[in-house]
Write a protein that binds this DNA or RNA. Structure first.
Lengths: 244, 244
DNA sequence: TGTTACAAAAAGATGCTACTAATGGCCTCA
DNA sequence: TGAGGCCATTAGTAGCATCTTTTTGTAACA
């Protein structure tokens, strides 16, 4: 019965705990669908899943149910499990985003996410200017200052971390729980931008100034200015990514 | 064993097909969590679910897995199933949105969704101006004209339908699959606005003109104008909803 | 007496197998 | 062309073995 014993199971700190079997099957199937390996309309049966991943019917069912709840597949009697048209997928599900970022269609997913950022972040900045708490306003200002320090020092790694913290805090301060839920995706986009070398070696001074402007406007409760300043940040992102 | 036989099972047209059992359990549990009836931190066991909803262990598990994939709960050995903090919920999952709209926190969900519309739709309009197909551009213009006709005639019901079609088509023409996925939510917000009587008896002429302006700008491929015109539409929505 | 250390027990999810019931697609036949 | 029947395949039930983590009990120790 295989009794996995995943080799690297020696993680002393319980850190890299082996993910539960059903999650591994879920990821494998999700990635297969998202990558197009299992094309829309493709029909599977639970038996197929059992054999393909060598798991019990229970796990095959579990996986199928989760995939169904994400609208990646639907399941009907006598037919089996059918891969849905991508139009119907719950593309906001973080798992799906992760799979798409791991697939060959990575670039598409990135540009969608970037466009989403361009839409959401200015409004989130305006919301933060109206609704952020005192501590959040202070922290945002501090982060903007740190961004300048790290940026001028050329410490890209630390800069990225602070940048993620800045944008994430802003989304969280917006008071809109749907915006908050986008923090992981923004972090993903930001770190990929650095990793892919799309980031200048030193952040442009305009970008640093724009972050400070956002922080100042939020701190001062000036929603319009915060929105405009965030727009400036994203304009730079847009051009850096070659979007129109 | 209750053998439900849902009374109204006589739906000749197969129209009101009784939803599958696991979906009913899922909805019931989801609503209980979202409404706060099952508060964050609350611990359940599969046995509890089996008894509470009188279903087998398999169904209890299925439901739990789906809820877990939405981050509404997590499940750990020896602990049970624990309701997650709302901060961690996948608030973009349409099921969750539906449950929240059905709960007493409806108003909160509406204002979040409206703010999301305010963020996304102008950028979607700009995207449509750049990327829409010829047929979509034509259809959008036609819908704007129909909106004027229906609006001036005071046919609110038909107006709502056309309005939903307009905004939905725009999102679909944007070429961003994440924007497309928001069509259901926009439809929900629009129809609720009409149902709640938040809509003027006759749409304001400015609104009609703004829709025409969006359609014209998209048809003409003028992204900036499309974005600005969509902004005008949403400014009206914003004030109608009493948002800042 | 109070505190740490370790072993045993228990609770509850994880995962498996094996079954019955229902249903919808497809084929046959009139 | 429509009705009826077959059967593949999910929907749903039942029960069991296993594995993990928490709790608890007990002993050693300060």
């Amino acid at each position: 019965m295989s009794t996995v014993t995943e080799d690297h199971a020696g993680a002393t700190d319980g850190e890299a705990a082996v993910p539960a079997l059903h999650l591994r099957v879920l990821d494998a199937l999700g990635e297969a669908i998202v990558s197009g390996e299992l094309a829309p309309g493709r029909r599977l049966t639970l038996d197929d899943l059992q054999q393909q991943y060598n798991v019990s019917r229970t796990l095959a069912r579990d996986t199928m149910r989760v995939l169904e709840s994400m609208n990646l597949v639907y399941s009907r009697r006598r037919v089996g499990i059918v891969v849905q048209d991508p139009e119907l997928w719950n593309v906001f599900d973080p798992k799906l985003v992760r799979w798409r970022l791991a697939s060959s269609r990575r670039a598409e997913q990135y540009s969608s996410l970037t466009e989403l950022r361009i839409a959401v972040e200015p409004i989130a900045a305006a919301g933060a200017a109206r609704r952020a708490g005192a501590a959040e306003r202070r922290q945002l200002t501090a982060l903007a200052a740190e961004l300048r320090r790290l940026g001028e020092a050329g410490e890209l790694e630390a800069f990225l971390k602070a940048d993620i913290a800045f944008h994430s805090l802003l989304l969280h301060s917006s008071g809109n729980e749907m915006f908050k839920a986008l923090d992981g995706m923004v972090a993903e986009v930001l770190s990929s931008r650095t990793k892919q070398g799309l980031m200048p070696f030193k952040p442009r001074p305009e970008a640093l100034a724009a972050h400070e402007a956002v922080a100042a406007a939020v701190a001062g409760g000036d929603a319009g200015t915060a929105e405009a300043a965030m727009h400036n940040i994203l304009d730079e992102v847009r051009t850096a990514m070659g979007l129109p």
